[in-house]
Design a protein around this nucleic acid. Structure first.
Lengths: 331, 331
DNA sequence: TGCTAGTCTGCAAACGATTGCACTCCTCGT
DNA sequence: ACGAGGAGTGCAATCGTTTGCAGACTAGCA
């Protein structure tokens, strides 16, 4: 409410002195500074961030664009982004694209002038579209790589290797993959990683079940495909789909893990609460969000030392939804 | 990037004319307007919202403060707020208090000057603290009432009546309530509603298990209390706790619903995926967020007709976690 | 032809902060 | 005693818009 002029009047100084007393205390005499600070305190003065933003060209705000806030994956990323940004004195705009790639350019444009920089979590747009939309902005990608843009990712490749290794060790030789949105960069990378890993192992056959919506409902559909595929294990794009698969399999009377092992990805909180508990790739999602902010702020500050941007380690957590396939025991 | 001056130069007019051509097209001649619009188009000009905000005193942004973004309850509210705000041309700041009431005043103050209005979802602060913190701001409360402030709530009273009625009809005569944060207004209101309902029914005894953290972990603890209480049914503050209770009961070998019925609140997505599926009070959380924004924007626009602010209806969804208590069948 | 009314446009002042520059004092050194 | 330099302060410009006011020009009317 109170502005710098009010404080100036109360302290008997000029507006400039008020500003300096607060941002560059060593440029004003002790006596004056005390008077200003006291007046500011008394009036509850806070520099207006909008005005400051206009003058400085820095709003001290960042924007975050996510595909779906209700997806616990992005809820966690958002929480991480929010926490780190706040700790650094930045406010956070959040925009939800509703998994609609075509909405992203507009969201970016709408936020660009309001913020110092953007964090894009798992953007769904094409490379070219994304690049064009981000032209002229400072942005960091989370869970996506795009040449020329800073990004922070998870070590998906290691994750899929752990999954395939685990399943193979249990005796699985035919493993299905239920992919998420075709526009998911990490999903495609995981599929490629799985193919490479299967190739390398030599004795594991990979079945691509196709693309499903990254929610429970997508899992329901995927479950039927998985059963029909003859695979003894199914690896889902994310935990939500994996939970949907578990639910559908239970409804169909398919036993997990005896008849079909199920592996998720992300390790969202509910993964432990279903029965059997879900084997999944634990991913540091809050950390992903925090690191994205670190990277962004480093850019904004023009730091010489770019913070570490290597993929974040993930870890397979083995729970009850994976086991030895009953078919291998038959012979 | 391009500003009004660039456009003015390109169109051969003054900055004022550029502004008018875009915001008050009828005040400028057709020919000029076309030139300006064309130039703006060509340069990709978008009025800078920060500068506009400073001049107009309206930022076209709203702030949302929630206790925990990772809680699916607030994720849904946030999604609703975001969607409605965006549809109305408002950007959304999101701040997460981490269930820490003492952080709320600071979050409010930090956002106040950046936004036109605030939505506070389930704020945890005391009435007096909250009132002081919101002094001078335009705010709407979601899931909390405070005299003098507009608010939008769920029909908790009806919800608890439905729950208690359902349990009583099944034969339960001793029902436990596992409360959430003591600072939760809706939690306290539910407890009061339960007490009143129990009183009214006359033959149902209510056991207050105390206050737990509104997460899975809180449910683990509550489960043991519930078993010890001798109740045949337990009603949890929210679904997360209820899921925690289910998990803990399974681990202890307590059968649901034969030995203990469990009821949640909110109907978050995962409630259907556990086994047994959770009986819970379905709450329109996205709608809560959207209505909060409607209410806020109505205030900001000084509409004469205040939008409907009656509590949103909730509905008990009966699934597998409630049933006839085995104890009543013994005699 | 002159006057009025109306249309269109530009100037300049806001909005609230920050900051380069200039000015006024002091102090200190010679 | 005088000049240099430094400390402390204020003036005014600036960021990018919007908008009241006034000027310029046109058209219409008598």
């Amino acid at each position: 409410m109170a502005n710098a002029r009010d404080v100036a009047k109360a302290a008997g100084v000029s507006v400039s002195t008020v500003s300096r007393a607060l941002v560059a205390p060593d440029q004003v005499s002790d006596a004056t500074r005390r008077r200003v600070v006291e007046a500011a305190e008394r009036l509850g003065y806070r520099p207006n961030p909008v005005a400051r933003g206009l003058r400085l060209g820095r709003t001290h705000a960042v924007g975050l664009i996510v595909p779906d806030l209700e997806n616990p994956y992005f809820a966690s990323v958002t929480k991480g982004v929010q926490a780190r940004a706040r700790a650094e004195g930045y406010a956070v705009f959040v925009a939800d694209s509703d998994e609609d790639a075509s909405a992203e350019p507009e969201l970016i444009a709408g936020l660009a002038a309001r913020v110092d920089g953007l964090v894009l979590a798992s953007p769904r747009s094409d490379d070219a579209v994304l690049r064009a939309a981000l032209d002229g902005t400072t942005a960091v990608l989370a869970n996506r790589e795009l040449a020329g843009l800073p990004s922070i990712t998870l070590d998906d490749e290691d994750g899929v290797n752990q999954v395939l290794g685990h399943l193979r060790a249990l005796g699985h030789r035919r493993v299905a993959f239920a992919a998420g949105p075709a526009s998911s960069w990490s999903g495609n990378r995981r599929l490629a990683g799985l193919r490479a890993a299967a190739e390398r192992l030599g004795d594991v056959e990979l079945v691509d079940l196709g693309s499903f919506r990254p929610h429970f409902a997508g899992g329901f559909a995927a479950a039927d495909h998985a059963v029909a595929s003859g695979a003894t294990a199914v690896f889902a794009f994310n935990d939500l789909m994996a939970l949907g698969i578990l639910d559908r399999l239970r409804a169909r009377g398919v036993r997990v893990p005896q008849d079909l092992s199920v592996v998720g990805c992300d390790d969202v909180a509910v993964a432990t609460l279903v029965s059997p508990a879900l084997t999944t790739v634990h991913s540091p999602l809050g950390g992903l969000g925090r690191r994205a902010v670190d990277l962004l702020l480093a850019r904004l500050r023009g730091s010489d030392a770019e913070p570490d941007a290597t993929p974040l380690p993930v870890e397979l957590v083995i729970r009850g939804s994976t086991g030895v396939p009953s078919t291998t025991r038959k012979p």
